[in-house]
Each structure stands twice: as structure tokens, then as C-alpha cells.
Design a protein around this nucleic acid. Structure first.
Lengths: 340, 340
DNA sequence: CTGAAAGCGCTTACAG
DNA sequence: CTGAAAGCGCTTACAG
């Protein structure tokens, strides 16, 4: 009994070469589309490889190439719908280009992000797609496309949703319903989406000449939790002159806000209109069906990956690209519009 | 101008060794917890490494070790909540053990799965977590834990939700409401969850002495689409003696079924009671709030990863483990129970 | 068209 | 305690 029966070593290129009676270098060439190989040799080597069940060792290939066919994707939390959709979109274009995705979660903690980035650098990934929680940190040593949560001015490219445009759509629709006192419940302006949606809200309110009192702006906690949105909504409802409509800058916030309305005996949209930036899964089936923004997180992922690939290929020559994916309004019932 | 200024080569162990004036082998040892190193050398090497910003090249380490610190996770679709939660749970324990996860999507296509597995083998991952769409295919060459969609009798371990127990809970609750004609809308019995939930439904119906006519069992399409569930529900409603309650074996199915009820002018739960195996995100906020099963997909991921690690460590000595994660009933309104 | 040789960046027996 | 050497599995100039 040889050792090999016990430790089933995977066949290597040397094994293939030996079986095909050629040098390893020849075997290597025969397995690619190298032109400098006789048809006969190519066939012989391929047959040997097939017979042995040979699969090239990508670790060795990577070492040789001084870079691994990996792209890192760093997200706060893969279990959040937005990020899992983004990741899937990015994976599609990455895999089509021969890359595998290494997905790391940061929980939006700077320390975790730093470790994640170091890990990716250690693996010598080719590029990184990063939703950062450290907008002021220096860029990784590896080509990086920032998405969702950006580092201003940094990276090979930056992609995000059209936060300001979306807010304008939402506030505009509420204003068209005749609302003048519109409240806002949003995440903290620490990162891109929180900051841009708040700014977008303020800009839209100004453009439309709405009552812009500070009391109408409520900031939820850093996890955009439904609970903190509920508390925010409760505060708004307790105002002497409460808003007649509210825009929530995320789906969890909208749901928390609706919960608080119910608890307070206010009906949506009859007593208070509500619209939301993020459209939750099955938002059409909620009570009431939610008026929200439609966009493609998946497409955002594809775009980010595409920009990274372009950058790796030496493209993006004319400076970093900053891309905003447009969103569109989906009118359902929570804004006060009648059933379809 | 040296080339190095143009191509910022990452420092290697040789660079560190040179700076610290030791041999590479010594530098290597000094950077680990090797005992056979003088304190002074250790300090000098560490200082050099720090000064250079040295990060060990994991690709080289992997080649040397003949295995990469990766674990593959193969799922039908990372954008499906169940899988993204599972992945996150698995990642937590995998990363704590020093592994990175390589997540691949198969779209439930056998061809994609085969490619994914080959890719993983090429990367010489240490282990695989696999929700298979090829239950009859041979096992990968690498230690594999099957989850969710299992290959009977295969793998180092198998983990899934307690499908039969869950169905029994659901049907039992409906029966307790007095229903005797209970319909079933489920995914095809091609894979584990479809098969076990259907079997569990039948067993529960038998146990409870319910009307078990075949017409009450409807099978949706292979993607468990809401549309196919809607069509199934429409067929059930058109029966001469339709069921008075329905159990949906997935969240999308439940939502499609509810949509069909609405379209047909039947109210849930007044005209028809409905319960669902999967609890959708925000299931409590639907109209009506859904009676469903609670479980932890995240925990399932942790368990699967734990079993894989145990297997890699040579554990699982007493045969493959087969684990079923229990579920519990969450009573809300769609079953006919009054509001809390 | 084919082969011998070097080398990617590590680690680990083997000496000393 | 430290170093020289070999080798993990590939690929690619360099010869022929």
C-alpha cells in the first residue's frame, strides 16, 4: 500500500506531464491556448489531464502571477437586503471576468473594517469594493471602488444611489398632496446615505417653500433601528403642531414609524401620510402599501464591479468616476393616494 | 528613479530579514510564536516588519501549506434572506477560526453548482458548506457539510431546519382552530425542504384525521414564486369544496397566496385562514400579521460551520452528524387568532 | 515546437 | 538560537 492511497494527493501538472511524456512546461502550454504547441501534443496532454482529473492549483497560479483572482467586498452586514443584493450583482460581473468574491462584514465598526482590509491585502486580492465606515481613513493599497458609504475624493471610483434626487421625489410627492409640514426621520449623517438624504430633504423642503422648522427633523440611531424610529415618530406626534406627513429615509425606519403611529392610534395615511426611501421586500403587501422609491441594488453592484474591472484594466483614465444610480417613485397608498 | 517607485512592490519576508540582518528563516520564526528565538532577535525582526509595513503573503503561505485558509459556501442565491443570514452566521464562526468564506451562487442550477465546486477545488479550500441542487452527485473531494438542501447519507454532516416538526406545528394550530379541510401550497419535493415539508404536512394531516384529499395539495414552481402560489391558491378557491385554511411552505408562497385571495375578494383570515413556514422580514407588519414559524437561520449557519470545523479537526468521529434546528410557532393574526 | 531552469514568497526539516 | 537549502505547483523568458 502506497501512501498515496491514504493521502489522496491531488494530481499536479508534473503528474500530467509525466503521463503525457512531456516536460511540465510543455504540459502547461498545452493546457492553455498557447499557439506554439503541436496539435498532437496538445491532445495527448489534455487526455492525460482528463484521465487524472487534473485541476490546476490556483494557489500556485496566484503566487506565480503575484496576485490572486479575488476581489474583496466589504459590507456592514451581508444579511441586510441592500447589501446582499449588491453583492450578488457584483458577483455576477466579477465571476464573468474570472474573479471570486471574498465578502467580509464590518458591522459598521472601524476596527472590524481595518482588520477586513488587512485580511484582503494579505490575500493579495486584485481589487476591493468597499462600503466604508472610516471615510477619513487612507485608501487601501489595492485598487478600491467605494460604494454606498463613500470616502470623498478617494478610490478608483465611487457609486451610490441618487440620494438627493430620491429625497426630492419623495418630498415633492408629499407636497403635491398639499402637505406643508413634513417631518423627516433618518439615519445619522455620519455616512453618505444618512448625510445626503438629510441634505436632500432640506434642499427639497427649501425648494418647495415648506415649513422647515428644526423640530421636524429626527435622527434615529446608528443602526437605523425600527425602535429608534418609533421613538422619533412618537416625539413628532407629540409636537404642538405635528407634521402632517413624514418621510422615512430607510425601510426599517418607516416600519418603526408606522408601528409608533399604530400604537398612538393614528392611521396611515388618513391621519398621517408616510413615504420611505427604501422599499422593503413585499412593500406592496404592507398595511398600508408603502409609497417608496424603486431602484436596483443589484444594478448598483454590477456597476461598481464594472468600474473596478475597468480600473484594473487601466481604464478610468480620466479621473475617478462618481456615479449616482437614479431612483424612481413608486406610488402606493401610504402617501394618501387612492388604491389603484 | 528606481523601478520600485513606479511599481510599489509589497515588502516580503526577505526584505524584513535583510533589514533585521537575519536569515529569512529566522525572520519567519521570529514573526510567529516559535520558542527557539532569542528575545532580542524577535524584537529586531518585529521592528523591521513594522517599519516596512510587512504583511505576510497568504498566497505563498497557502501554497506552502498545500491548503488555503478558505471555506466555500455554495448557496442558490445570496440575495434570498435565508441564505444571507445563514452565510453571516457561518462567517462568524469561520472567521473566528481564521478562515475566509468564498460565497458562490448557483441559482439552483446543477451546471452552475458543478462549476462552483470545481472553482472551490481549484482554490484548494479547506472545506465546503453546500446547499446542493444535485443531491445525487458525488461528494466534492473536499470535506463538505450539506445544509438546507441535503444529499442523503453524504458529507461530513448535514444540517437543516426541522421541516417536519414545523409542519406539524402549523397544521396542528390550524386544526386547533377547528379546520378540517386544510390546503397545502409548497415548493416541489425535489430538494430537502420541499420534500420534507410536504411529507410533514401529510403526516400531520393523517395524525389529526384531517380530510386528506389530493386536491388540497398544490405544488408551486421550482423557484417557489409568489405568482405560482397565487395560481395555486386560485385553483384551491375554485374547488367545489375548498379548504377553509391553507399552509404555505414558504414566505413568497404565502404572499402570493394572500394576493390571490385578495384578488378573489376573500379575506384572510375571515374567509380563509393562512399560516406560513417561513416568517418574512417584518411579517408582523403585514395585513394581516402572519402566523409563522420562528427559527434562527443565523444559528443554522453557525452550527453548519461548527460541524465543518470539527470535521476538519478530525472530530465527528462517530459518523456523520445530522442536525435539525427546531422551530417554534409565532401566533399572529392570519390563522384567525384575535389581535393580542 | 519542446525542454531545462529560475522564481513567485513562504516554511520547515536538517545542520550546526 | 540561527542559517542554508529544499520545495509547495505553477509559468515564462531563454535556449535550442
Amino acid at each position: 500500500m502506497s501512501d498515496e492511497a491514504l493521502l489522496p494527493r491531488r494530481p499536479t501538472l508534473v503528474d500530467v506531464a509525466r503521463l503525457a511524456q512531456v516536460a511540465p512546461s510543455t504540459a502547461s502550454r498545452a493546457l492553455k491556448e498557447s499557439p506554439r504547441i503541436s496539435e498532437e501534443t496538445r491532445l495527448r496532454v489534455r487526455a492525460a489531464a482528463r484521465g487524472l482529473g487534473y485541476q490546476p492549483n490556483r494557489v500556485a497560479q496566484s503566487l506565480r502571477a503575484m496576485a490572486a483572482p479575488f476581489v474583496g467586498i466589504v459590507v456592514p452586514d451581508i444579511a441586510i437586503t441592500f447589501y446582499s443584493r449588491f453583492v450578488k450583482g457584483a458577483q455576477e460581473v466579477l465571476e464573468a471576468a474570472g474573479y471570486q468574491a471574498l465578502v467580509l462584514n464590518t458591522e459598521r465598526e472601524a476596527g472590524h473594517e481595518e482588520v477586513a482590509l488587512r485580511t484582503l491585502e494579505g490575500h493579495r486580492v486584485r481589487g476591493i469594493l468597499l462600503a466604508t465606515s472610516r471615510p477619513d481613513a487612507p485608501e487601501p493599497h489595492i485598487p478600491t471602488v467605494y460604494f454606498d458609504s463613500l470616502a470623498p475624493g478617494r478610490g478608483a471610483a465611487r457609486v451610490a444611489l441618487a440620494n438627493a434626487q430620491g429625497m426630492d421625489l419623495l418630498v415633492g410627492h408629499l407636497a403635491a398632496h398639499g402637505h406643508e409640514r413634513i417631518g423627516y426621520i433618518g439615519g445619522p449623517p455620519t455616512f453618505t446615505s444618512g448625510a445626503e438624504r438629510l441634505a436632500g430633504f432640506r434642499l427639497a423642503a427649501e425648494r418647495l417653500g415648506l415649513d422647515a422648522r428644526a423640530a421636524y427633523v429626527e435622527i434615529a440611531d446608528s443602526t437605523w433601528s425600527a425602535d429608534s424610529a418609533g421613538a422619533a415618530m412618537t416625539r413628532l406626534l407629540a409636537l404642538a403642531e405635528p407634521p402632517t406627513a413624514v418621510v422615512a429615509s430607510g425601510d426599517t425606519l418607516a416600519l418603526g414609524a408606522i408601528g409608533a403611529c399604530r400604537a398612538a392610534g393614528r392611521r396611515v395615511p388618513d391621519d398621517l401620510a408616510l413615504v420611505t426611501f427604501d422599499d422593503p421586500l413585499f412593500g406592496a403587501l404592507f398595511d398600508p402599501p408603502l409609497t417608496a422609491l424603486r431602484r436596483s441594488d443589484h444594478e448598483l453592484g454590477r456597476r461598481a464591479a464594472g468600474l473596478l474591472l475597468a480600473s484594473l484594466a487601466g481604464g478610468n483614465g480620466d479621473g475617478p468616476a462618481e456615479l449616482r444610480l437614479p431612483v424612481e417613485l413608486v406610488v402606493r397608498r401610504s402617501c394618501g393616494c387612492p388604491a389603484a
